[in-house]
Design a protein around this nucleic acid. Structure first.
Lengths: 227, 227
DNA sequence: GTGTCAGGTTATCAAATTGTTAACTAAATA
DNA sequence: TATTTAGTTAACAATTTGATAACCTGACAC
């Protein structure tokens, strides 16, 4: 569920190349950033943290190899795809580029269509592996058990442990009614004995904090997540 | 920590090509299987479930496109890398190959070294990333595990070993909550027994030294890096 | 209308958890 | 060995969380 557009940075000192690649990538729905030399490429990369960086090898200030090597030493660009472009199609630089951590190496003259399909092929491999967590998302409400974070309309709401666990339990199966007993054993554990009003109070706190009634009471039965 | 050798299947009708690629891949430590046509390629693939399949496009019985398409329709070859080889370097088949689910497309004449480094580049993406020492940068905060150095706004802050390791652990996965147990086993080791307050004290020292609260407490759960 | 029941609300207190400081110990360094 | 530095612990303070009691509200039956 990639909500944000995929960001691609193109670094090349030839404005024509930038323009033509940029045109095709934009048309394909990517968000495109550009840089005209190696230093600018690094600046832009740090600013936007793109998903893919297309680097010309022959560039002023810092060449593509240097930029590639630098980016690869940074944790934040771990998952960033790096595609190297070159006019010279020699074996040595091809290998060097890939050894420095490049993901692909494309020789000029560049066919925008081919470049696009190569990038797509790379993304096919990368994207699925990024969203493997157990985050629950229902419309604008995001419940992330890894971060212990609840987001509603982009705003972060801090729930206490029990509150979070209760909300998470219900939200895991939206619509399903959880009996009070189930909630107690799941959130509090089987051996803990707490009074009847305890659940209500926590439900109340969740409702109050989120400001939205995403928990519905089913009288005489229990509660369910409903949003 | 790959205990089993990586398996690669090569399918090409030219024995010379098979031999030379096979030689290089074997030398590089891969376990190599071969097939001389499309049907055999599928048989061998089903038999060995290789990690990577190199397919010549022009093959008897079933061509590379057909084999590629078939393999991609099978769940068991979801993660298998497919590299397509071709004598004809036309744009259309290049794009077609990638659209059918190929991961790379290499034109003949093939340089074994280039092929090898392309395959390696692809595997780098698929195989579980090794936890190597990479610089973490979040805005103005730079954490360099090689130099054991923390920089904030260009100023260098010297953290003690444990402090640094704790910060690094959290910062490797910003936002993720680390349970106290996780922190203990990662930073202190499984066999070392230290009190609960020890973590707090170190967190406090990091906060005090950096002057920025980049570590958030999640009460009852643990700590997370948040900056 | 009144009683009853299930749940909602609030305030309060107890318990759990974390923060802070200082003192002590171990390890590294000179 | 003396000195510094890092790491750990204990004791206590501060804070947060959770549980409960007491009371309120609304629905429904009679």
């Amino acid at each position: 569920m990639e909500t944000n557009p995929i960001k691609i940075l193109i670094a090349d000192d030839e404005p024509d190349i930038i323009e033509i690649i940029s045109f095709h990538l934009t048309k394909a729905g990517f968000e495109v950033y550009t840089a005209k030399d190696g230093s600018e490429a690094i600046e832009q990369a740090q600013l936007h943290i793109p998903d893919c960086i297309i680097l010309d090898i022959m560039m002023p200030k810092r060449n593509g190899f240097e930029v590639c090597e630098y980016l690869r030493s940074q944790k934040q660009f771990d998952k960033t795809l790096i595609v190297l472009l070159t006019a010279l199609n020699d074996e040595a630089s091809h290998i060097k580029g890939l050894e420095l951590g490049g993901d692909d190496f494309v020789s000029k003259p560049i066919s925008p269509k081919v470049l696009l399909s190569r990038i797509s092929a790379l993304f096919r491999r990368i994207l699925p592996s990024t969203n493997d967590n157990k985050t629950i998302q229902v419309r604008d409400l995001i419940i992330d058990p890894v971060q212990y974070k609840t987001t509603l309309n982009g705003e972060i709401y801090t729930l206490a442990k029990k509150e979070f666990e209760l909300l998470f339990l219900l939200a895991e199966q939206p619509g399903r009614v959880f009996l009070r007993n189930e909630i107690l054993s799941q959130v509090w554990g089987n051996d803990v004995i707490v009074g009847d009003r305890t659940i209500d109070v926590h439900v109340r706190k969740i409702r109050a904090k989120l400001g939205v009634d995403c928990i519905t009471t089913v009288k005489g039965v229990g509660y369910k997540f409903d949003y």
